[in-house]
Design a protein around this nucleic acid. Structure first.
Lengths: 190, 190
DNA sequence: CTTTTAACTGAATAATTATTCATTTATCTT
DNA sequence: AAGATAAATGAATAATTATTCAGTTAAAAG
């Protein structure tokens, strides 16, 4: 018996992400994905029951991926600004290194594939980040705005900056990153 | 002879925007658009040669729309912060009132419908905004960062905040708007 | 080395969606 | 009021895309 090559799942995911980044969710077909990944259309159906399952599973994987990255090296007992900086930089690094996942998630949010429940569940994964923000407010280090505002303000600006740099092939240096951080920080600090 | 009802174009556009907001670009069909707009599928083809033409024309219209809104009431001779505030508030108002256009443009950018040239041409429309930012830098009122950074930082955060409020049906009060402005301003000011 | 099993293939089929077109309807012209 | 013309309709057709499946190949077991 020939065993399933689980590595193929990763190849299918990679092909899908690349295509979605290039063409958008509306521009991809199952045969395009198979061709890009380097095998026959039917093979994709060995690993996924249908297109929807592929999209949903990849979406879940992307969400897992970022929640994992965001909090690596995060020490909740560190001073607020240090902890904030750690997570902020994790977010930025993830956005840069997994740019195609970023785009994919964004496209999925406005698609028939992702349900409202899934959308909401996604937010709950950011709990440690939320707790950190609340702490910053309590310590009067940042503005007394709703957690969501802070979160969206920070992430929104970051996402558009990364998009711009990626599309224009601008290298994101460390100085660049720190400057970006400074803008965010100055925006939210009390 | 029965004349073309040019009002139908607006209805087709409105139906398309609503559907894209709800389902994403990948989730819409010509018959869905026609049904939503309230007439037969074939009618859409009297006003647009095909789906692509519809999408591209609507995209152009949306771009026109926002460049028009952004600079209404803008007085280049006003003090920098006043002028900046005017445009910023115009952007915010436009994002709120034309939320579906915002989503549509975003979706189009990652789709096979919009060409790279169109993507680039879109940016050129923001010239007055660019000039204002450069002036702010010259007057040492804002940080000496590249124009694009400032622009993207400001718009990215705003967009995600408006998305959040829209999806969660939060009313955006004037205090809310000014608070949001404050975050942006503090982020970029020197 | 043979058998067995399941992956893999890609052409065939099914399902969906875009587009057309014969027919009907509404408006304008005379 | 009748004729002319083009819009409007929606079922029919064409095109595209998802999904299946009969045949082929490759790995594992004995």
């Amino acid at each position: 018996m020939k065993p399933k090559d689980e590595g193929k799942i990763a190849e299918i995911y990679a092909a899908t992400l690349t295509l979605v980044k290039e063409q958008g969710l509306s521009g991809i077909t199952m045969s395009m994905i198979a061709r890009k990944a380097g095998f026959a259309t039917g093979t994709v159906y060995i690993y996924f029951a249908n297109k929807e399952e592929l999209i949903v599973k990849l979406f879940d994987k992307c969400i897992d991926d970022y929640t994992q990255h965001y909090f690596t090296g995060y020490d909740p007992s560190a001073p607020f600004k240090v902890a904030f900086h750690t997570i902020w930089m994790n977010m930025l690094r993830h956005s840069i290194e997994r740019f195609d996942e970023l785009v994919f998630i964004e496209q999925c949010f406005h698609s028939p594939f992702i349900s409202d429940e899934t959308r909401k569940a996604t937010k709950d994964r950011m709990l440690p980040w939320r707790e950190l923000i609340e702490r910053g407010k309590k310590e009067k280090l940042i503005k007394q705005f709703d957690y969501s505002w802070i979160m969206l303000f920070v992430r929104g600006g970051m996402r558009d900056l990364v998009k711009h740099c990626t599309y224009n092939q601008l290298k994101i240096t460390n100085e660049f990153k720190e400057a970006m951080f400074e803008m965010c920080w100055d925006g939210i600090k009390d």
